[in-house]
Simulated scan of single mutants.
Amino acid sequence: MSPLNTVHLQKIFNRLDKNGDGLVSADELGWLLDRIGLHAKRDELELLVGGKSLDYVDFLFFYETLIKESSVFDQETCEIEQEDNILERDLQKAFRVFDLDGDGFITSEELQIALSRLGLWDEHSGQDCRRMIDVYDANSDGLLDFEEFKDMMLVKSQS
């Protein structure tokens, strides 16, 4: 969303001020929000704007507050997306450690070999890689694809 200049904001304010009293009421603001698909009750709008109506200066302040909140939300969303992308790349690298033949699937044999190489497999412990895979094998094909591996690494149990 690109910020509007004061000329645009004055035009918007004047159009919203349907009765020409120099104020934008909660009802008039509600009309605008309804038109853009954001529905709010009058009492909610009054709480949001701090009264029953806004003069032009208060309208500008209200707009600036919305822009700042939108900017903070956009920045937080961008940071979350970046973290998700980093996590996705890290999981892809980890998947390749276990997918020894590079076919896009992890077999129980590949899992056992990779765990052994990492020093995490003890043949005497009684663990069975087949059962480990079965827990996260959503389509029951006996293999883990990347999405199933990701679920396993993010500790999501399959039903």
Score class of each variant (00 low, 15 high):
N14M: 13
I12E: 06
E44R: 07
F95T: 00
E83P: 14
S159W: 08
P3F: 09
L111G: 00
A138H: 08
E109Y: 06
D99L: 00
A94S: 03
D134S: 01
D122F: 06
L33D: 09
F146Q: 05
K52A: 10
L33H: 08
N5M: 07
S2R: 15
I113E: 02
G126D: 05
P3S: 11
P3I: 08
L33V: 15
L4I: 12
S157I: 02
D122I: 05
V24N: 07
F61P: 12
L111A: 02
R117V: 06
L143F: 01
V57C: 13
E147H: 04
D43S: 11
D21G: 03
Y63K: 04
V135E: 01
P3N: 11
L29K: 02
L45R: 05
D122K: 03
H39V: 10
F59V: 03
W31M: 12
E81K: 15
D137P: 00
E44A: 10
H124I: 12
G50W: 04
R130G: 01
F105N: 09
Q92V: 14
L9A: 03
L54F: 03
H8E: 09
G30K: 07
L143N: 02
E110W: 01
Y63G: 03
D103E: 13
L120K: 06
S53A: 10
K150G: 04
A94D: 05
G30M: 08
E28K: 07
R89M: 07
E79M: 06
R117Y: 04
K93T: 15
E64D: 12
V49P: 05
V24G: 07
T77E: 15
L16G: 03
Q112P: 02
S70V: 14
V49Q: 08
I86W: 15
D101E: 03
V24D: 06
E28G: 14
T6R: 12
G22N: 05
G37P: 01
H124W: 08
V7W: 13
H8Q: 10
K150N: 04
L54R: 06
M1C: 08
A26V: 02
S140Y: 02
D90E: 15
W31C: 15
F62Y: 01
F95V: 01
F13L: 09
D55Y: 05
D21P: 01
Q158G: 05
A26C: 07
C129G: 02
L144N: 00
C129Y: 00
L32P: 12
N19T: 09
N14H: 13
M152R: 00
D27C: 15
E148P: 00
S116L: 09
V97P: 04
L115W: 01
E64M: 12
M1V: 07
G50P: 04
E69R: 13
D34K: 11
L38A: 13
G119V: 03
E44G: 08
T77M: 11
E64N: 10
F61G: 12
D128R: 01
K18L: 13
L38N: 13
Q75C: 14
F149D: 00
G51N: 06
L115G: 02
D27W: 11
D128H: 04
V97I: 10
R89P: 10
K52F: 15
Q127Y: 09
T107G: 00
S157G: 12
D43C: 07
D101P: 02
L33G: 10
M1Y: 14
R96M: 14
L91D: 03
D141T: 01
P3M: 08
D84T: 14
W121P: 05
N139E: 03
S25T: 07
F61T: 15
L91H: 03
D17F: 11
Q112E: 04
